[in-house]
Amino acid sequence: MQEAMKIYFELNGEQRYVEIEPGESLLSLLRRLGMKSVKSGCETGDCGACTVLLNGRAVRSCTTFAAQVRGKRVTTLEGLGDVDDPHPLQEAFVEAGAVQCGFCTPGMILVAYELLSKNGAPTPQEVRAAISGNLCRCTGYVKIVDAVLLAAQWKREGKWR
């Protein structure tokens, strides 16, 4: 029996010290810790539903080992906001009609968050490129692009906290 390994990492602003299984994916760890926004859609890194931010950069948690986040900062959608205090991006997705089934939404919002942290005034094509690794089968992406552009506009207008 392999000995269990424990790691420190920061999850949504809180220090965590947790046991991980040998070979465990970050997706599995995060869902085990209650971060149910992290969705499993393919486990091969192709759909983007399991996207989280690792030190601010979007990664696929299904193809990232839990051990790789040792000492790092992980942000899941829960870390952005909740229904009583949503992040403007979350508001924008609802406002624009970008949420249909909602399964791809957590990953979409996180890649949009990364984009807008680097580029406050993206063009529609830049938004499409940024979200192109995240699949959605419901919306045809039209309203997701609208939502990201709306959130960017709110950010430029100083409406982000």
């Binding site: 149910k36 829960e78 952005l80 508001e91 609802v94 909602g102 939404t105």
Partner: peptide, 8 residues
Amino acid sequence: GLALACGR
């Protein structure tokens, strides 16, 4: 919508 956008 909002609950889904917040990953509930």
